[in-house]
Amino acid sequence: MHKLRLKFSKTGPIKFVGHLDIMRYFQKAIRRAEVDIKYSEGFSPHQLLSFAQPLSVGATSDGEYLDMTVNSMVSTTDVMNRLNSVMNEGITILAVEELDEHSAKAMTDTYAAKYVLSFRPNSKPDFDWIAEMEKYLSGDKLPAMKKTKSGMKEIDMKPMIFAHEFDEKEQTGTFLLSMSSLETLKPTLLFGAFFESIGKEFSTSSLNIHRVDIYKLVDNGDRRYIEPFITNDMNERFYLNG
């Protein structure tokens, strides 16, 4: 058996397809591609698939991940080519990597996500949002009300923002945000709190959200850093304090 991690993109109109339908889509694509996928045992066998954190409906991405187990394969490249040959426009398998059998699932390993954020052409703010947001992010604390299973809870977003930068020409902001089982900061919550802080109304539909990649935590004892699940580029590492 082989445990594989697939990296894929989600762009174009398919961004409006929800996570459950994407799961069903992959199940059908795997069968069409004749990948020798492993099934669970029992009365209702199902493909052994595990996705990383779901992407919000309407958002695009170049860094989505899916773990799956196959009984046999020619190579990771063959699996990628088989799947891409049956994919519809909007989803492309970008890489396939074989994992150690003891590797944690993608959802368990998820620690952060990088986003490029901008405003839709007909929803651009009537003020210099980049200058205002830079001032906002410089605060010692960034309070926000977050909905949890037990109700609304006040949180501090500041430690959940690992890095950020702005492109004045393109009018975009790039954010590296916490995304784990313990702490997740969604771009819409951050921007909603920012707009509220300056007395402006904010609509989640006004924001273009593109997820660049998903990051895992690597602890080498004296150095802790995060990097994309699949990468050979040390420049993609972000070192954490402490």
Rank of each mutant, 00 (worst) to 15 (best):
V17F: 06
V17R: 00
L20K: 15
L20N: 14
D21I: 03
D21G: 09
M23W: 00
M23C: 10
R24E: 06
A29N: 13
A29V: 15
R31Q: 13
R32V: 04
R32Q: 08
R32M: 14
R32T: 04
E34V: 09
E34C: 05
E34M: 14
V35E: 04
D36R: 08
D36A: 14
K38A: 11
K38D: 03
K38S: 12
S40W: 09
E41H: 12
G42W: 11
G42L: 03
S44C: 14
S44F: 12
H46Y: 13
Q47A: 10
L48G: 02
L49P: 13
S50M: 01
S50L: 02
F51D: 09
A52D: 13
Q53C: 00
G58P: 08
G58I: 09
A59C: 02
T60F: 14
S61N: 12
D62L: 09
D62P: 01
G63H: 02
L66I: 05
D67K: 15
M68G: 06
N71L: 10
S72W: 00
S72L: 04
M73F: 10
M73Q: 05
V74D: 10
V74L: 09
S75T: 08
T76L: 00
T77N: 09
D78Q: 11
R82Y: 01
R82A: 09
L83P: 04
L83Q: 09
N84W: 11
V86M: 02
N88E: 14
E89K: 15
E89S: 15
E89F: 01
E89Q: 12
G90L: 05
I91M: 12
T92L: 10
A95K: 05
A95I: 08
L99K: 07
L99W: 00
L99P: 13
D100A: 13
D100K: 15
E101P: 00
E101G: 09
E101N: 11
H102K: 13
H102I: 03
H102R: 11
S103E: 15
S103I: 09
A104N: 03
K105H: 12
A106D: 07
M107L: 09
T108F: 05
T110I: 13
A112H: 00
A113F: 06
V116P: 08
V116G: 01
S118A: 12
S118F: 08
R120K: 12
R120T: 10
N122M: 15
S123Y: 06
K124P: 08
K124G: 06
E132C: 07
E134M: 03
Y136I: 02
Y136L: 13
L137G: 12
S138H: 05
L142Y: 04
L142R: 05
P143K: 13
A144C: 11
A144G: 11
K147A: 03
S150G: 06
G151W: 09
G151S: 11
M152L: 14
M152N: 15
M152I: 13
